[in-house]
Amino acid sequence: MEMDTWWRLVDTARVAVGDRADDREDPDDPLPEALVNVLSKLEPAEIVDFYAKHVEVSDLAYTYPLCMAAYLIEGSWSNDGFMDFRGGLILLGRDTFSRAVKNPDSLATVPTVVRMCREEGGWIGYESLSYLIEDAYQKSQGETDSFGAAVEAAVKGMARPGKPLGEEWDPGNAEQIRLRLPLLAALSPVLD
């Protein structure tokens, strides 16, 4: 699946839910179901291709600078939390995702991030993006028995980073973080 096609599918779901597309905190968050609906209209092989591209896109955001941004925004430093952060970053759409990969400090302009840093609610992380893709397959095919093997074959041989890419940052070094992510550091209560 081409990258443009992949992002077009994500953005189609975002357009379907309108102004509720950027906040995962709501218990009735409409974006996950909208994405399942969009993906379930694809052929089974295309859903598997979407999954494989999801792995590739998520890996693009597997960097130390974004990990530190997640720390400033969410207040935690864990592999699971960073995986959820990247899933939520994808759901923010191509433009926000691409800007954040190039410059994680750009996330300081995302309204949900601003609310999170001010402890006024909101959440961008999303734990089970891969499960949404499996749900779409289930909805399309009526089963998921064939999904696991198809996904395993699709991602087999992909070059995957074993740790975040780039120079490692110390989350305990507030001065270093302030220098590299000044906008997020100014918003975040983590460094206070």
Rank of each mutant, 00 (worst) to 15 (best):
M1V: 15
M3A: 13
M3D: 13
M3V: 06
D4Y: 02
D4H: 06
D4T: 10
T5E: 15
R8I: 00
R8E: 14
L9Q: 04
V10E: 04
V10T: 06
V10A: 05
D11F: 06
T12N: 11
R14H: 00
V15Y: 13
D19C: 03
R20K: 13
R20T: 03
A21H: 04
R24I: 00
R24L: 07
R24W: 01
E25S: 08
P30D: 10
L35P: 07
L39W: 02
K41W: 07
E43A: 15
A45T: 13
F50C: 09
F50W: 02
A52K: 01
K53A: 14
V55R: 12
L60M: 13
Y62R: 14
Y62C: 09
Y62H: 13
Y62S: 03
T63L: 10
T63Y: 00
P65G: 11
P65D: 15
I73R: 04
G75S: 07
S76N: 09
S76Q: 10
W77V: 04
W77N: 12
S78P: 11
N79Q: 15
G81D: 10
F82Q: 04
F85W: 03
R86M: 09
G87H: 01
L92H: 11
G93Q: 03
R94N: 00
D95S: 10
T96Q: 06
T96F: 00
S98I: 05
R99T: 09
L107Q: 05
T109Y: 15
P111A: 12
P111C: 06
T112P: 09
T112D: 14
V114W: 01
R115S: 02
E119S: 13
G121H: 12
G122A: 01
G122Q: 08
I124M: 11
I124W: 01
G125M: 09
E127I: 06
L129H: 07
S130V: 10
Y131E: 14
E134K: 13
D135V: 02
Y137L: 06
Q138W: 04
Q138Y: 14
K139E: 08
S140T: 11
Q141T: 12
T144G: 07
A149H: 07
A153V: 06
V155L: 03
M158W: 11
A159I: 08
A159D: 13
G162F: 11
G162S: 13
K163N: 04
L165K: 02
E167L: 08
P171D: 12
N173D: 15
I177P: 05
R178N: 07
L179Y: 11
L181W: 02
P182E: 13
P182K: 12
L184C: 05
A185M: 05
A186F: 04
A186E: 06
